[in-house]
Design a protein around this nucleic acid. Structure first.
Lengths: 235, 235
DNA sequence: TAATTCTATTTGTCTTACAATTAAACAAAT
DNA sequence: ATTTGTTTAATTGTAAGACAAATAGAATTA
């Protein structure tokens, strides 16, 4: 990108770096429909020529896209557009909110309340059965049930069967889980949690969107308030 | 990173690239609490020495983090952790779903239904007033109201006042808006949309979580079904 | 004091070279 | 004919060094 374009970019104060421009160019290939998920991109050498940039610049762009989950690369094989984003990028992003417990709790509530609506409509019998199992196992392990708790929510998240929102579930659940470990372990509430999970399960089984939402809301608000109480006690 | 580590990474089949490792290292600085949003990172030269990597590798990692919205850089000033992620990364990610109309519509519904719950609790009088204005303007412009429609939803998204979920709103709304432009312009429904917005507004004004959810659900499902009908007609 | 110029720091870009990985082609052995 | 091993070549991965561009802050001047 040495020349030619007479840079009439007066308006943009913060001129974009070349690598950022390359990122945008490659994204456009998707938006144009020239490429789609799964397609193989040209080799770095070819891209360098087409885009008129040096290899480091190109590779900065490709690394960015890979970290975003949009492409993936394999030595000797080449560069491909991914099928879906996956959860790694969101995990990385969440690191910026480390310690901001209220925001994380809210985000988790927000995402899960959105998902339960999709889930109530789309959840399969098989997934309902899986849910039932987690409840059963939770009943059998009143002392250490946090893994089954998380699993319950994860199943609901994935039963919404939506690749876009799906990517958000695991990172948020993991973050919340990690936070819970840091605060007191003494505030568990096995019976109450069981009942709430069962109520949610029953609503999902009926595919009752509104009831599922209500039960999930109660469940999540219950958890949020408990945590907020705990961290306020500490301070 | 020339040597030393005898690479006992037998388990991980796909060895991580250096730049990916650097990304993880820098993320850990956040998770450890050694750095937080707003902090300035060491210069590239220093990071190169500390991490034992070459400059291209380091810069690939930094570019990745910048594209993820986690850091931002300014010539001569240095590199800083961002205060929030912003909406660009999600816009980029969404490109991978270009054309997958059902998924995008669902994701939008999911996110907004999650947000309305937070919004119903946290929305301010000022934001309610803004909402009222968009409804008024929409009433005055029965022919071209799509911008006010989008604005209405955007205000609700931001009234949830949560930096994490906030980043998702604009990209999704823009994507949906763009899709709507591509399908027929003839399917607008001014009166119905007005009524639904008013119903949502009234629920928010009462800070009634459940009613706000219900009204928003009706509104979004109405829109989704309309679009799905249209695209099915075409095919 | 205020405006201007200079300087040094930091990020941005390019070039070149070589290393590492491995699919694919080929050869050898069974 | 099928498996197994070997070579080759294509592609991504890493490194080093140089220079360009932007600009905060210091130095200079009016």
């Amino acid at each position: 990108m040495n020349l030619d374009q007479k840079d009439v970019n007066i308006k943009s104060v913060k001129r974009k770096t070349l690598s950022k421009q390359v990122v945008d160019q490659i994204i456009q290939l998707l938006e144009n429909g020239h490429f789609k998920a799964g397609d193989r991109l040209p080799t770095e050498l070819v891209l360098m020529e087409k885009l008129h940039v040096s290899r480091p610049v190109l590779r900065e762009a490709l690394s960015s896209l890979e970290t975003l989950g949009i492409i993936h690369r394999k030595t000797r094989e080449g560069t491909f557009f991914s099928e879906k984003i996956g959860s790694e990028p969101f995990s990385l992003m969440l690191a910026l909110s480390t310690g901001d417990i209220p925001s994380i709790m809210e985000a988790r509530i927000s995402i899960e309340l959105g998902l339960i609506t999709l889930a109530a409509k789309k959840i399969t019998d098989k997934q309902l059965e899986e849910l039932r199992k987690t409840i059963k196992k939770m009943g059998e392990n009143p002392d250490d049930y946090s893994e089954f708790d998380k699993e319950f929510h994860r199943i609901i998240g994935y039963s919404a069967n939506n690749v876009i929102v799906e990517s958000l579930v695991d990172p948020l659940l993991n973050m919340v889980d990690q936070m819970l470990r840091q605060v007191s372990h003494e505030h568990k509430d096995h019976e109450e949690t069981m009942e709430q999970h069962i109520a949610i399960y029953n609503a999902l089984k009926k595919h009752d969107v509104m009831e599922a939402h209500t039960k999930m809301y109660n469940h999540l608000e219950y958890g949020r308030k408990k945590i907020m109480t705990i961290i306020n006690e500490d301070s």
